[in-house]
Simulated assay, not measured.
Amino acid sequence: MAEKKRFLLRIDPKVYDALEKWAEDEFRSVNAQIEVIIKKALKDSGRLKKSGKSNENEED
Rank of each mutant, 00 (worst) to 15 (best):
A2W: 06
L8E: 07
W22I: 02
P13G: 02
V36N: 05
F27E: 12
K4D: 00
E35Y: 04
E58L: 10
S45W: 08
D17M: 08
I34A: 11
K53L: 02
N57Q: 09
D12L: 07
I38A: 15
S54N: 11
D60M: 12
F7N: 04
M1Q: 08
E24D: 05
N55C: 07
E20V: 08
S54A: 12
A23V: 06
L48K: 10
L42D: 04
E59A: 00
K21R: 12
S45D: 13
I34K: 02
N57A: 05
K39G: 06
R10V: 00
G52T: 10
V30K: 00
F27Q: 09
E58G: 09
E56V: 01
K40Q: 14
I38M: 08
D25K: 14
R6D: 08
E56Q: 11
D12M: 03
R10G: 08
G52C: 06
K50Q: 15
R6I: 09
E20F: 00
N55L: 12
E56D: 11
G46L: 07
S45R: 13
D17Q: 12
I37F: 06
D44F: 05
K50E: 15
K43F: 13
E35R: 15
S45H: 05
N31T: 06
N31A: 10
I34G: 09
R28H: 03
D60Y: 15
L8R: 10
D44A: 07
L42S: 01
R6V: 04
E3H: 09
I11Y: 00
E24K: 05
L9V: 14
N55Q: 04
I37T: 05
V36Y: 13
G52M: 07
L19H: 01
K39C: 10
P13N: 00
S51A: 15
V30T: 08
E3L: 08
I38N: 05
K40F: 10
G46M: 05
S29L: 09
S29G: 01
K49G: 04
F27H: 13
E56C: 02
S51M: 11
W22Q: 06
V15E: 09
E26S: 10
D44V: 11
G46H: 11
K4C: 00
K14W: 07
A41D: 12
L9P: 01
D25L: 14
L19R: 01
M1N: 14
K40H: 15
V30S: 01
R6F: 06
N55E: 14
I11S: 04
K43I: 15
D12T: 01
V36S: 11
A2H: 15
E26M: 13
L48Q: 03
V15A: 09
A18P: 00
A32V: 09
E26N: 09
L9S: 06
Q33G: 12
N57T: 02
S45A: 15
M1E: 13
N55I: 06
K40G: 08
E35T: 11
D60E: 12
K4H: 00
S29Q: 03
K21I: 07
L9E: 03
L8C: 08
K40R: 15
D17N: 08
L48E: 02
V15K: 02
E35V: 13
K5F: 09
